[in-house]
Design a binder for these strands. Structure first.
Length: 864
DNA sequence: AGCACGCCGACT
DNA sequence: GTCGGCGTGCTC
């Protein structure tokens, strides 16, 4: 930092410097002070602060005098915004340039002793914001656990300096004043209870303007440490006299004496190291009452302290078993290690059951040996206890899990323990879903992206719409870390990158310990239908296979990618179908709740008894949902226990784990489920996997539909036959000759890849072209369409034929917002940054048109 | 994201 | 005349 010394002191001949900042003076000031302390010249500092809001740029605040030179980039600060709001902003830049067009407000306070975000993280945030056409505020919101944000509560009090004059007050205002005379402080919640109206602010504002009341903001950190009462010795138990004295006091209090003895045993107080004992454990262990403990405290023998404790479960540390790799696995491991030496990402293409995890474990070990951190990314649904336990078995408490089931307090603690740095209790491995990318890594050595093809690595709403797999490549580069992407069915993009030598391709083609890949049969549903041989949606082949599998005492997994009982209801007389009131989508019938539910907005309606259009009572449930499959199976196989795994059955806190446990313990014979059954689950007694309706996956109108169908069916097929026996997979389809099904059947990934790549090239899709999708949403359908057209024309001015649309998407309205989409296909060699800037300008241009101002316009880079 | 502000219809 | 509903735009 530059220090400015006033010239006069520097040059004065009688100045004696006794200390860099302390100057002894002889004569030249009058009256003469003995010393003058010279501080560096105070300059006014300003800080650019990231706020957790979607703002086009950072806001500048003034650094108060007492914080000058004390603020660091990455610290959170309390800043005011607007008239009464406060936010926990993040210091992004410190400078001395006063803003020209406004007077900056002051930073209110510093919230962190040390920065909570490293410079590397900020660099990463910048990349995300710029690449995905987002802004730092949105990245900040996505990156930081909300436990780091502030809770602000507005409270209302009477203005003590103002005489109470209710003469000119409205009824509402008098109600508030009366309430304030009864109770001194009211929260906004209290006020809205009194007024019984939604808009409380106008009333309060008038009272504030009249000077009758004051409002104050109470701010608190959202994160609260979990506390625990710990009992300590209040006297020195090595001092015989004191101990004697203490026990004398307890002569008639046997309970207390017992409790004390128990405490001494537990705390080993006679040793030199005195430990505390957790209060609840002490009381339970000694079978004593709180009263006994209280009297011991009152007598000055024990004391209780409230301490912060971790919420994170510790696992029993097991000896590092070390993995032994098969020959194939070892070859893969070697190939990946070599790739790392050249600082090249690796793509591990290994069929299900080939033991990718062992290879990962070996790589993690290497990284840990170098004292580096590891990030292991998985899609949310694959983050099951199975994989978590597996890693914890090898790495014990070094593994931290970070998934959506964690509450905000727990997330903050994971964050803190990772950022903690050197001591041994810190985490070294983060296992998490896409948002784990934003963890405060200080020394990242390895990134693993497992199931890299999964579309859930792409965040869709809200912004930043980032693809965690792609972003993790950038993150790894920033940390100079190694990265491996893994999948049994790699995405077309990644495989293409590998073939183009951007990644090192490493393949594991055989299943671990020689287990055979399952046999896949396609059941022709059209033919079965002709013969009227379909029973409750099951082809004769699948029905027979289930029967046989159950008879062998093996388990069955059935996959149907639709929850609920029936995806739509239709009138057989006129064809009418009940739709959501807020979305352009048919309502799904849920038999368990006996309701029609919208899967987009959650709207619920009663099941109609008659057709709303023609009055006919001939309503039919159409399509197949998991509930229906579950029910059919219970009917067809009354002796089997059937369970269902989908969003509806796994919403409870431990429901998901319990279901898996029941299946693992063979309490369940048949498991019916959505995508959830396809990932992260390894069971060793599954003899049969059935895909109820493959057509549905193949017909989905999306350029990735075939790729995804291949991936999904292959993945679920991989659940069959783990140990000794070869598993069987039956895929039901009305179009059994579909080329994708043939490819699945022959496990011919390469054929699928080549065919898809060609199709993508023909129709200008990634990886041949890059895409940016601009989505427009408005409550007014016409306005939305007009705005979309206006924007598309602006875009076409420079981008021409690359701009497609606007077009209404498959679901044209969600939650009463009409949607239009403009798709931009770009040659990879274009300067993407410039294109994005241009798109931004066009969006701003559209927004500046007053008739389009209310339209929400969201660019989505690399849409899924 | 809030929240103020301004315009407009409804109602004591 | 108020009240309060809703759309629009600003916050350093």
């Amino acid at each position: 930092m530059k220090r400015h010394y006033p010239q006069v002191f520097k040059k004065h001949p009688k100045l004696q410097i006794t200390h860099p900042f302390l100057f002894k003076l002889d004569t030249f000031l009058n009256p003469q002070p003995k010393y003058i302390v010279l501080l560096p010249l105070m300059t006014t500092q300003f800080a650019d602060v990231i706020l957790p809001l979607s703002l086009p740029k950072n806001y500048t605040y003034r650094v108060p005098r007492h914080l000058t030179n004390a603020l660091t980039v990455g610290q959170r600060v309390l800043v005011p915004l607007g008239k009464r709001r406060f936010y926990a902003g993040l210091v992004y830049k410190i400078h001395e340039n006063a803003p020209e067009n406004y007077t900056a407000k002051y930073i209110e306070a510093v919230l962190d002793e040390y920065p909570i975000i490293t410079n590397k993280q900020l660099k990463f945030w910048e990349w995300i914001a710029s690449y995905y056409m987002s802004n730092l505020g949105e990245v900040y919101t996505a990156a930081l656990p909300s436990g780091f944000r502030l809770d602000s509560e507005t409270k209302v009090v009477l203005n003590p300096s103002s005489p109470l004059d209710t003469a000119k007050c409205t009824d509402h205002e008098i109600l508030i004043i009366d309430a304030l005379e009864m109770r001194e402080v009211l929260s906004l919640q209290d006020v809205s209870d009194i007024l019984d109206i939604k808009t409380v602010f106008p009333v309060l504002n008038r009272l504030v303007q009249k000077g009758l009341i004051l409002t104050k903001e109470e701010l608190s950190e959202r994160y609260k440490p979990k506390t625990c009462d710990v009992v300590y010795a209040a006297i020195d138990f090595n001092n015989e006299a004191l101990v004697k004295n203490a026990f004398e006091k307890l002569q008639r209090a046997h309970k207390q004496e017992e409790l004390l003895m128990h405490f001494l045993k537990e705390s080993s107080a006679f040793d030199s190291t005195i430990k505390g004992v957790v209060k609840s454990e002490l009381l339970q262990g000694a079978n004593a009452s709180l009263a006994s403990l209280k009297s011991l405290v009152d007598k000055g023998i024990l004391r209780i302290e409230t301490e912060a404790v971790s919420r994170l479960k510790t696992v029993e540390e097991k000896a590092n078993q070390g993995v032994s790799l098969s020959e194939d696995q070892d070859a893969a491991y070697q190939a990946i290690s070599t790739s790392f030496e050249h600082k090249k990402p690796a793509l591990l293409h290994g069929v299900t059951g080939s033991g990718k995890t062992e290879v990962y474990i070996k790589l993690i070990e290497d990284s840990l040996k170098q004292g580096k951190q590891v990030l292991y990314l998985l899609p949310e649904i694959a983050l099951t206890s199975q994989i978590i336990h597996r890693l914890q078995r090898y790495f014990g408490n070094q593994v931290a899990v970070f998934h959506s089931r964690f509450n905000q307090n727990e997330r903050v603690e994971v964050w803190q323990r990772l950022a903690g740095g050197k001591d041994d209790s810190t985490f070294k491995i983060i296992l998490g879903a896409r948002s784990a990318l934003f963890m405060p890594f200080t020394n990242l050595g390895l990134v693993i992206v497992d199931e890299e093809h999964e579309s859930t690595f792409k965040q869709f709403d809200p912004a930043p719409r980032y693809q965690a797999r792609d972003a993790s490549i950038v993150l790894a580069k920033m940390h100079n870390a190694n990265i491996v992407l893994g999948s049994a069915t790699p995405s077309i993009e990644s495989y293409q990158n590998a073939l183009q030598n951007k990644y090192t391709l490493v393949e594991l083609t055989k299943r671990f310990s020689g287990v055979q890949l399952p046999e896949i049969r396609i059941a022709n549903m059209a033919e079965a239908q002709k013969k009227e041989a379909i029973r409750e949606n099951l082809s004769p082949q699948l029905f027979q296979a289930i029967e046989e599998t159950l008879a062998k005492g093996e388990q069955v997994i059935l996959f149907q990618n639709r929850r609920g009982f029936s995806p739509f209801v239709q009138c057989n007389t006129c064809g009418w179908t009940p739709e959501c009131n807020h979305c352009d989508i048919t309502l799904t019938y849920h038999k368990y709740k006996h309701l029609l539910i919208c899967h987009y907005c959650g709207y619920k309606a009663d099941m109609p008894k008659q057709c709303s259009a023609c009055g006919s009572s001939d309503l039919e449930l159409k399509g197949i949902g998991t509930e229906m499959v579950e029910e059919s199976l219970s009917l067809l196989f009354p002796d089997a226990t059937v369970a269902r795994m989908d969003l509806d059955t796994t919403s409870g806190k431990n429901a998901h784990e319990n279901l898996i446990e029941r299946f693992e313990n063979k309490q369940v014979n048949i498991l019916v489920g959505t995508q959830m059954v396809t990932k992260g689950l390894d069971f060793d007694n599954v003899g049969l996997v059935g895909v109820i309706s493959a057509d549905q996956l193949l017909q989905f109108p999306h350029f990735r539909a075939h790729e995804r169908a291949y991936q999904l069916i292959s993945q679920v097929a991989g659940r069959a036959g783990r140990q000794a026996k070869r598993g069987l997979v039956i895929v039901q389809a009305y179009k059994p000759d579909h080329h994708i099904l043939k490819m699945v059947q022959h496990n011919d990934y390469l054929a699928m890849f080549k065919q898809q790549l060609e199709e993508r090239s023909t129709f200008d899709y990634p990886p041949h072209k890059r895409m940016i999708m601009v989505q427009l949403k408005d409550k007014d359908a016409l306005k939305c369409a007009k705005g979309a057209y206006f924007l598309s024309e602006l875009l076409r001015k420079k981008l021409g034929y690359r701009v497609l649309g606007p077009e209404k998407p498959v679901v044209g309205r969600i939650n009463n917002y009409y949607i239009q989409q403009i798709l931009i296909k770009l040659e990879p060699k274009l300067d993407l940054h410039k294109v994005k800037e241009f798109i931004d300008l066009c969006i701003i241009d559209t927004k500046s048109n007053s008739s389009f101002r209310s339209i929400r316009i969201n660019p989505d880079v690399d849409p899924q």
